[in-house]
Simulated scan of single mutants.
Amino acid sequence: MQNYKILFTGSVCSGKSTAIRSLSDIETLDTDARASDVTVRRKKNTTIAMDYGVLDLHDQARVHLYGTPGQERFRFIWEMLACEFAQDAIGIVLLVDNTRKDPFRDIRFYAKEFREYIKKRRLIIAVTHSDVEPNPSIQAYQACVREMGLMATVMFIDARDPRSVLGVVEELISAVELHVQWDELCERLLDGNGFSLDFYKPIYEETMLDAAMNKRGVLGVMHLDENQEILCSNIDSKPRKVLLKSVNKLSKALAEKAEFMGEVSNVVIAGPKVQTLSMFTDQEQALCLCSDNEISLPVLRQQASDLLQWSKENDYLV
């Protein structure tokens, strides 16, 4: 049995306990107590030690879900969870309440508190309650993350919706756990929680540009159709655009001239002191990425493949 761990943290009322309950196949272990401070204005009970749940991905893989208390006076529990229970976690999910007066302050605070923990793990910033307060936008969060120098993915989620929270787990685990049937798992969770597939609507519909920029290490994006027309791009450099288009044409020429190579689906231009320029194709579309040269090619390839697949199935807004 392959066991994975994910640590959920964030402020009071950000949705940590709710998110874990949405996913767990067991009755969640929680340590709620009646709120006795300013928290009582938002909720009657609050977590004072930890939340714990389990999600079975399939017969041979399981995810252990740990949630920290939100109040700062339980900071010692944060350290215990990070250093003992979830010290080998695959990632950390920072839930941010969009109705807070300054949600960016929460990101700065928790990024500092979990600084050493984040250095060795994937970080997902999951923004909740955007159905109540739509601003700040996802673009504002992405800008904040870049300014802070964090390598993080930003997602808007509904902690009550198993589909929404499962997307966070998929983002963390899909690259290393290749045999999960995510659609079937989603249906099982919805059935188990009594939801219909149409009960919740997506909170945020991403463009291809937003989705790509959310991927780790991606610094610029250009999405091309089968006719080399730009569907969306935030790469302003004209020479770089021309180069990426030429690379896309080169891949087709190589495939035609060198039959033994078969289809050329990706071309990468990299150097030790420059950003990496990559081109990935799938079914007559191409995704050109400018990325940090420290990101490994397999990770970049997986990210591009996911984006192109989602674009094909869900028709990202352009």
Rank of each mutant, 00 (worst) to 15 (best):
R301F: 13
S296P: 06
D315Q: 14
N227G: 11
L185N: 12
D131G: 13
F280P: 10
D30S: 05
R188A: 13
E27C: 09
N98L: 08
V274T: 15
E229D: 12
A258Y: 05
G10P: 03
S311F: 03
L57T: 07
I26R: 08
W310H: 11
N227K: 10
I203N: 05
T207S: 15
E27I: 09
G10C: 01
M222V: 07
K44E: 15
Y316K: 05
Y110D: 09
L287K: 04
V154F: 03
T68K: 01
P272A: 09
K245G: 12
S24W: 10
N314R: 09
N314M: 06
A175V: 04
F199W: 02
K241V: 08
W78C: 02
P239F: 02
A212Q: 14
A126P: 11
M155A: 14
E133D: 11
S137T: 15
N227F: 14
K16W: 04
A33W: 00
C13D: 14
R42T: 09
R34Q: 15
T9E: 00
K252A: 06
A159Y: 07
K215Y: 12
K238I: 08
I92V: 14
A86S: 08
L209Y: 08
C232K: 06
Q181A: 14
I173P: 00
H179E: 06
D236H: 06
F199K: 02
Y204L: 15
I138W: 01
K241D: 05
C144E: 13
S196P: 00
S278D: 10
V268Q: 01
I157W: 02
V264R: 07
Q60F: 04
V40H: 14
C290G: 03
I90Q: 10
D161K: 00
M279T: 15
K44A: 11
S265P: 01
A211P: 12
C288D: 05
D30M: 02
E79T: 08
A82I: 03
H58C: 13
A143V: 02
D282P: 02
A61R: 02
K273T: 12
D56I: 02
V318W: 09
Y117D: 06
S130D: 10
N266C: 15
K101P: 10
N293C: 06
W310L: 12
C288T: 08
M151A: 12
A258Q: 10
L65Y: 02
I230L: 05
L55I: 05
